[in-house]
Amino acid sequence: MTPSLIPRDWLFQGVVSGLSAGAGYALGVAAHWLLRRSRRWPAISARVRGAAPAWLPEGRWLALVLVPAALVVMLVVAVPWQRDLATLMGMDRPTTGGWLRAGPVLVAVAAVLIAAARGLRGLARLL
């Protein structure tokens, strides 16, 4: 979500951020896979389960609150950066409303990547 040397429009930013979110998810899954094989995993797991509300298992409640809030904050914060870059490059300046359209694109791209990876994993297990 940070500025680059070339100003980005909302669609490009959504695709790039979705790819980044998918890669971050993959790193988180890999870290979880490694942690499960650790001797400390039972203690870590018990601590996380103790902090979570009963209706939502394993700390997912934190992600449900923080991830959407962080997404909107980063999209709003990125607009002035992109406006400054567009002005310096002599291009059209993006609007905040237009820039917020990157959010749904980001979610869609990340969801497609995650679904494809899970599908491949399921296919590998099946074979």
Rank of each mutant, 00 (worst) to 15 (best):
P94K: 04
L56G: 01
V109C: 07
R37N: 11
A21L: 15
G90P: 01
A51E: 10
P80N: 13
G24S: 12
R118C: 06
S45E: 14
P57A: 14
A78D: 14
L56I: 14
T95S: 15
S45V: 01
Y25K: 02
T2Q: 09
M1H: 02
G22L: 08
A70M: 15
L19W: 06
A26F: 13
M89I: 01
P7G: 05
I44R: 05
R39E: 09
V79H: 01
S45N: 13
L88A: 10
Q13K: 08
A111I: 09
A31C: 00
L5F: 08
R37Y: 02
A51Q: 13
V107D: 04
A23I: 13
Y25A: 15
A115F: 10
R40W: 04
I114Y: 08
V77F: 01
F12E: 12
L113M: 15
W55K: 02
G24E: 09
A116H: 02
A31D: 00
P53V: 03
G14Y: 00
F12H: 09
G97N: 04
V72W: 07
R121T: 11
G90M: 00
V29C: 03
A86I: 05
W41Y: 13
V16H: 04
G59M: 11
R93M: 09
R8D: 00
R101N: 08
T2M: 10
P53C: 03
H32A: 10
G97T: 08
G18M: 09
H32C: 03
A102Q: 14
L123E: 03
G22Q: 10
L126K: 12
V109Y: 11
L56S: 07
V77D: 03
R60G: 12
T96Y: 05
M74F: 11
A124R: 15
R60N: 05
S38N: 12
L5Q: 08
R118H: 12
L126Q: 14
G119A: 08
D92P: 01
Q13N: 07
F12Q: 12
M74R: 12
I44P: 03
R40Q: 04
G18N: 09
V15T: 04
F12L: 14
L71D: 13
I6T: 12
A31E: 00
L34D: 00
L66A: 15
L5T: 12
W99M: 14
W61F: 11
W61G: 11
V48G: 06
L113K: 05
T95G: 15
L120M: 12
V65E: 05
I114S: 06
L127R: 15
W10C: 00
E58L: 10
D84L: 09
R37H: 13
G98N: 01
A43H: 08
